[in-house]
């Protein structure tokens, strides 16, 4: 231990193990930036992959009536599985890696995304579909140029819920050593370092709120015809 008298005054909040400590922000700056970047990467990759998996599943559930309850039931049941158990159960397949966390988070995101994509597509009025077919739209053009754009507001709302949940859940990935800001929270617990725990926790909530706002704005920009409606 360094005697307190020998330490500059500015560092005292670290010695006092204060919850709020500006000194921590400057001295561990690169560590914090790395954790935020890792957290962001895990979240974005998980939600993007989740959306790419959810779309064909939703289309399948729409096309084949009999599969609808199966697809919805399976994706909804996933939320029952506690994250710590899910990450552990993936371990034999993907090991102590970031992949384990991403696969787990993709599975959780499906709970929300499959349902919202399906709801969005089913909300497209039948007259709109008829009109597009009458104008000579092929099935794929109908999907990409008419149905998905009209489903976008609902899909974006699902993406927002999935993203915010994913940011929070990423922290549990620390059990396999890839929890982004969760790694700092866990380290702070083991070393009894309050500033590290509080800073990482606040950054995590802030990240969720910022991503939510980004998606909200992006959604508004992508659906200009609804601007000012809701």
């Amino acid at each position: 231990m360094i005697p307190s008298a020998a330490v500059p005054r500015a560092a005292s909040c670290l010695l006092e193990n204060a919850w709020v400590c500006p000194e921590y922000l400057t001295s561990r700056r690169s560590e914090l930036v790395d954790a935020v970047v890792a957290h962001l990467q895990i979240t974005v990759v998980s939600v993007v992959v989740g959306a790419l998996v959810a779309l064909p599943l939703a289309l399948l559930a729409r096309r084949v009536r009999a599969l609808r309850p199966v697809v919805l039931g399976a994706s909804t049941a996933l939320y029952t599985v506690p994250s710590l158990a899910l990450f552990s159960l993936l371990l034999p397949f993907t090991g102590l890696s970031r992949t384990t966390v991403v696969v787990g988070l993709v599975l959780y995101s499906l709970t929300v995304l499959v349902r919202t994509v399906l709801t969005g597509l089913e909300g497209v009025p039948e007259e709109v579909r008829d009109a597009a077919r009458g104008m000579g739209f092929a099935p794929s053009a109908l999907l990409w140029r008419v149905e998905l754009p009209l489903a976008l507001p609902v899909v974006v709302s699902g993406l927002r819920v999935a993203t915010v949940s994913t940011v929070a859940l990423t922290t549990v990935g620390t059990i396999v050593g890839n929890g982004g800001l969760g790694d700092l929270v866990y380290d702070g617990l083991r070393t009894d370092f309050r500033a590290e725990v509080l800073t990482a926790s606040v950054l995590c909530v802030a990240l969720a709120l910022v991503l939510d706002a980004v998606l909200l704005v992006a959604g508004r920009l992508l659906v200009p015809w609804r601007r000012g409606v809701a």
Partner: peptide
Amino acid sequence: NLARAVPTFAVLVLLAL
């Protein structure tokens, strides 16, 4: 909405310290 954004793990650790 707030509950969704707050990581349960972080709250557990914050209370533990």
